[in-house]
């Protein structure tokens, strides 16, 4: 059973849905419970929307967004990372982005954001809950 998903798309608005659907299919294959999939897709959907809207704003060419999801049985986590190579803009300087950040924090167990050569949002979901309601 595949326990890693890696998918790259151009950071265009139309890429958000296919990326969410790929993640959803990956989680269905892993047997993740529907109620848990909702949290994960909701959190990851925000990170994708954020990247698509802001990462390459003002850039000559729209770059890529990469989604990596990895199930770590040992650490008992599902880690999802959304990576771009654009310019990070602090949420307080954007209109309404505080909303998306709050959703990501509340829907995941752990949330970290790195802004070294692009932006990487990494979210962890507790694998102990993956197969049952919480």
């Amino acid at each position: 059973m595949a326990s890693e998903l890696r998918i790259v798309r151009s950071a265009q608005p139309g890429s958000a849905a296919p990326l969410r659907h790929a993640l959803e299919a990956f989680m269905v294959a892993l047997g993740v419970a529907p109620t848990v999939r909702i949290d994960i897709v909701t959190a990851v959907g925000e990170a994708l929307a954020n990247t698509i809207e802001h990462a390459y704003k003002g850039a000559e060419k729209v770059g890529d967004v990469e989604l990596v999801a990895r199930l770590d049985e040992k650490a008992s986590t599902l880690a999802v990372e959304i990576i771009d190579h654009g310019t990070f803009i602090a949420p307080k300087r954007r209109r309404n982005r505080g909303l998306g950040l709050g959703i990501m924090k509340r829907a995941s167990q752990s949330f970290t954001l790195q802004t070294v050569s692009g932006t990487s949002v990494r979210m962890l979901f507790d694998a102990a809950f993956l197969h049952g309601p919480h």
Binding site: A16, R20, T42, G45, E46, A49, E53, N96, L99
Partner: peptide, 9 residues
């Protein structure tokens, strides 16, 4: 079936 913060705004 799905909404993100763009829609909520």
């Amino acid at each position: 079936t799905y909404a993100d913060s763009t829609a909520l705004s």
